[in-house]
Design a protein around this nucleic acid. Structure first.
Length: 784
RNA sequence: GGGCAGGUGGUGGAACGGUAUACACGAAGGACUUAAAAUCCUUUGCCGGUAAUACGGCUUGUGGGUUCGAAUCCCACCCUGCCCACCA
């Protein structure tokens, strides 16, 4: 057997059992020690298991949990399963077993994988969103929202995925396609349940100022919420009772509005009383846009449209009648689904006007058309001469409009026509919805269901589901058949972790007060406009209703970077480039995998997997193991290198610069191999411990002979006075170019440095030729 | 089109006003071995120069600027990745 080799399988199994037994990471609610709530975005237990990319974030939180523990903090590091939802259900359909069964199997497999990586989760707090003990409170949450007017039902166009056979929230549609299966999404008019997230739009924006999150994530949320200030204006259709309401951020350009444009879905078009002369042509246009819709909207943005013949509207500013068009560059989703077109000062309107030869009226002085900036108003009646920015509000008011704030954010559509989710706790009686009473929660998800999606809710055929409903709620009572979006389940799970087994409340106030908010949250950046927004919204609702004493759930958020396959592509089963952690753990050990993933590159950056790099890390661990064995009994005092190492590791962990922690430890081991001194071993094992916990525990207890876990020890401190080098290398430069170095005791004066320089013939020559020199103590002397 | 993050050896990256290329991978050579693997040792930015040293020059996407000194700060441009995208 080679030197330094260790039996990772035996060592890792042994210490994993030991940590379980010792319960070192069981969180204690109410303990005096400062709390550290360290959280991963919980996993959905898919059929594929973990690939090597998944644990990257978990390794980081595990490092923090162990590090905080050693710093004497009361650590909460919980684990659970986002078990409801489409991926789990689709997998179940694929293998032809009920999702409850496959989910259980998958969780078992995931659990084994997570344990094999040596993660110290507090398994006593494990939760599973698909179990009644959990979803009872998801349903309770729905009830709280409904009772307070934050949950409502409405008929509206909704994103329908024909493949998943369900509606989707806006956040689950990307480029007009279903985020899960990439199918083109259709618009369907349906009666659905919504959460009023738009009520919190402003708070969701302002709250971002008080959290420590990546700037890109904050920007992403602000853009998604899409707040803009403007005015709502009304355009009368002559000789009718119809008015077209538009939203504009540029009320100041009203005098330049030469036509109106309606979105194809605009309801007024369907009204027969409008007497559109070319109704057939219009209907045809609407039909074609519906078909092409999202697909052709990509980059080819050639404007199309049809005029509503025989119909005009009056511009309230000019009093002139202007034409009305239908065009798909106006979206029904945003504002009122209608715009006033100002071709002189808007690029899109300009393009449209050019194509269809519509009049262009300049109302702001200067610049080539279309000019989109502000400036002095012209051709604007009594407003001419004023600054456009300052005049906007006055103008809107003058012509019957009002100032208004508009958001891109829509209310959150939470109904799903799928089986594997929490049932919505609603009963219909004579078509009227009413809440299931709290004492009757949870509404159990039935098992007598063909869970394959059909477009109808799979719960439709269940007898079990409707059993006893009439007995409780009277004749004709029927349960709501849709289930909730899984993002509802995951919008509050971090609260449940504080008190996961509570049967009376979603979590008791004391536990919430003690643990929340989450101190460090790590997960993927893809959740920016989904989970992270929803979780903040739910927190704000519960805060407003007095259930919580904070209104931001995650104080510090960081995203781990993606790990790509060695070919530089995303890992996926279909590409066949997936690297499985199980194989690596079997061959090299969990410690090696952990350290390598932290060593690969900056934590938040995308990196490609390189299995060759893994062997380098394994070699490092073996060298370290061998060295600790050799030096354990050497008598010596700690020298400056170990103080420097402790400083570097401590500071870099805090900044999440794990890659340099590892390289720092590697350098240290390389240096120490040349020194016979052994006074550093304890501190070294301690700083290694969060990264390679099994090997460090082995070193600590078996080599250094300690009786207790290394994680029960205290994190080493460093003495700044011992860090300074006693001798320093001073760089000698000529006009900034390196010419040589001199070695001197630290703190040498300029004269002492000059004396040293003069002793070197070559450097002395340079010094004599210089007119002056720049001296930086202990660093550099530059002759100019 | 907009926003954000980046561009440093053959590769992942380090340094983020003060010796650029730490650490690791890969590659080359050597030791051990019948041999291979493993391990250990040495070399490894580019160009010139030399028998080999010595020695010199160049180099952090491109071009400017600030500075005694710039990968690092400022300006302009080019390229890559991610997110958003006809949002009125």
């Amino acid at each position: 057997m080679k030197e330094g080799h260790y039996d990772h399988l035996a060592i890792e199994a042994k210490w994993q059992k030991y940590w379980d037994r010792e319960k070192l990471f069981t969180a204690k609610t109410g303990a005096k020690a400062p709390k550290a709530y360290t959280l991963d975005m919980f996993a959905y237990p898919s059929g594929d298991g973990l690939h090597v990319g998944h644990p990257r974030g978990y390794i980081a939180t595990d490092i923090f949990a162990r590090y905080y523990r050693m710093r004497g903090m009361n650590v909460l590091r919980p684990v659970g399963w986002d078990a409801f939802g489409l991926p789990a259900e689709n997998y179940a359909i694929k293998v032809g077993k009920p999702p409850a069964e496959t989910t259980k199997e998958n969780i078992k497999r995931f659990t084994k994988q997570l344990k094999s990586l040596g993660f110290v989760y507090d398994w006593e707090r494990e939760i599973n969103t698909s179990e009644p003990e959990y979803y009872k409170w998801t349903q309770w949450l729905f009830k709280v929202l409904y009772d307070n007017g934050y949950a409502y039902q409405k008929e509206a166009y909704a994103n329908w995925c024909p493949s998943c056979q369900t509606v989707l929230a806006n956040e689950q549609v990307a480029n007009g396609r279903c985020e899960r299966c990439d199918t083109l999404v259709e618009q369907k008019l349906l009666k659905q349940w919504f959460f009023k997230i738009t009520d919190f739009a402003d708070e969701l924006i302002s709250g971002l100022d008080k959290v420590d999150w990546p700037e890109s994530t904050k920007v992403g949320q602000r853009n998604w919420i899409g707040r803009s200030e403007g005015a709502s204006l009304k355009f009368q259709i002559p000789n009718s009772k119809f008015q077209i309401e538009v939203f504009t951020t540029r009320a100041d350009t009203m005098f330049g509005a030469t036509y109106l444009v309606l979105a194809p879905e605009h309801p007024v078009i369907k009204n027969e009383k409008l007497k559109i002369k070319n109704l057939e042509e219009v209907a045809q246009y609407i039909e074609t846009t519906k078909k092409k819709s999202e697909l052709e909207r990509q980059i080819q943005k050639e404007k199309t449209g049809v005029q509503l013949e025989g119909v005009t509207a009056v511009n309230p500013a000019t009093g002139k009648e202007i034409p009305i068009w239908v065009a798909d560059y106006v979206l029904m989703d945003y504002g009122t689904g209608a715009i006033m077109a100002v071709p002189a000062h808007d690029e899109r309107d300009f393009e449209f006007a050019k194509k269809f030869d519509l009049p262009v009226e300049r109302v702001i002085k200067g610049g080539e058309l279309p000019s989109t900036g502000h400036g002095q108003l012209i051709n604007s009646g009594e407003f001419s001469g004023r600054n456009s920015m300052a005049a906007a509000a006055d103008m809107a008011k003058q012509f019957g409009g009002k100032m208004q704030i508009q958001y891109k954010l829509h209310d959150w559509l939470i109904s799903r026509q799928r089986y594997w989710g929490a049932p919505i706790p609603i009963i219909y009686k004579k078509g009227q919805p009413m809440l299931v009473e709290e004492k009757d929660l949870p509404v159990m998800l039935p098992t007598d269901v063909d869970f394959k999606p059909t477009g109808q809710s799979p719960l439709l055929g269940s007898k079990e589901f409707q059993k006893d409903v009439e007995k409780k709620y009277g004749k004709g009572a029927r349960r709501e058949l849709d289930t909730m979006d899984t993002f509802v389940c995951s919008s509050w799970y971090f609260l449940r972790y504080c008190d996961p087994h509570n049967e009376k409340e979603f979590a008791d106030k004391k536990s919430l007060k003690y643990w929340m908010p989450v101190d460090l949250y790590i997960g993927g950046a893809e959740h920016t406009n989904g989970h992270l927004l929803y979780a903040r919204f739910i927190t704000k609702v519960l805060h407003k209703l007095g259930y919580l004493n904070f209104d931001e759930p995650f104080l510090k958020l960081r995203h781990q970077g993606l790990i790509l396959a060695p070919d530089g592509e995303k890992m996926s089963k279909s590409r066949g480039n997936v690297i499985n952690p199980d194989d690596l753990i079997a061959k090299y050990g969990a410690d090696t995998l952990r350290v390598y993933e932290m060593f690969m590159g900056p934590f938040d950056q995308t990196v490609a997997w390189d299995t060759n790099g893994v062997t380098g890390v394994r070699k490092f661990l073996e060298r370290a193991y061998k060295l600790v064995q050799e030096r354990k009994s050497a008598l010596a005092s700690e020298d400056s290198s170990v103080h420097r190492l402790v400083k570097k590791v401590t500071e870099d962990i805090e900044e999440m610069k794990f890659n340099t922690v590892v390289s720092g430890m590697m350098e240290f081991v390389n240096d120490m191999s040349r020194v016979k001194d052994g006074g550093w071993t304890e501190s070294f094992v301690k700083v290694l411990a969060p990264f390679a916990p099994h090997l460090a525990e082995e070193m600590w207890q078996k080599i250094l002979g300690k009786q207790k876990s290394v994680f029960a020890s205290t994190w080493p401190t460093f003495d700044p006075s011992k860090i300074a080098h006693t001798t320093v290398v001073i760089v000698v430069q000529e006009k900034g170019k390196l010419r040589g170095t001199v070695n001197l005791p630290a703190g040498a004066s300029k004269d002492e440095v000059l004396t040293a320089v003069m002793q070197d013939e070559r450097l002395a020559k340079i010094a004599k030729m210089a007119s002056r020199e720049v001296f930086v103590p202990d660093k550099i002397i530059n002759f100019v």
